[in-house]
């Protein structure tokens, strides 16, 4: 039998330094739909931002910005909680502007 180790000789538990880690992208989980926002209707209430389980609704400071499709799992919770129906679910293969931002019916340049 191995000799018992002192407390300081035992390896400490699994340690992960957050800043060294790139999180795996979970956008591949989507089942055919992704969100898109019509900024004409958005009232910047941020409820979608708080309720998104994957932190895939981006905020710029305290303002709504758009969607991070790399992490969005397509649960449509954001579209469901949106009080003004600004968020709509579109087919995953549909071309959308970056971050899903639409204005006046067309892509929003920023």
């Amino acid at each position: 039998m191995n000799e018992l180790k002192k407390y300081h000789e035992i390896p400490i538990g699994g340690t992960v330094i957050t800043k060294d880690v790139v999180q795996p992208k979970t956008g591949g989980w989507r089942m055919g739909e992704k969100p898109m926002v019509n900024l004409d209707k958005c009232v910047n209430c941020l409820i979608c931002w708080l309720d998104c389980p994957d932190t895939a609704v981006l905020a710029e400071g305290t303002d709504f910005f758009g969607f991070e499709y790399d992490y969005c799992k397509g649960c449509a919770l954001c579209a469901e909680v949106c009080p003004t129906d600004a968020i709509v679910m579109v087919p995953d293969d549909q071309e959308v502007p970056e971050y899903g931002r639409m204005l006046n019916g067309g892509p929003h340049e920023n």
Partner: peptide
């Protein structure tokens, strides 16, 4: 809450909780 998260994002995506999970909220 948004201002606090803008300062420091304490919990981030890329985890494997189900889509539509209530826990991250």
């Amino acid at each position: 809450l948004a201002a606090n998260e803008a300062k420091e994002k304490r919990f981030r995506g890329g985890h494997s909780l189900c889509s539509g999970c209530g826990i991250p909220i």
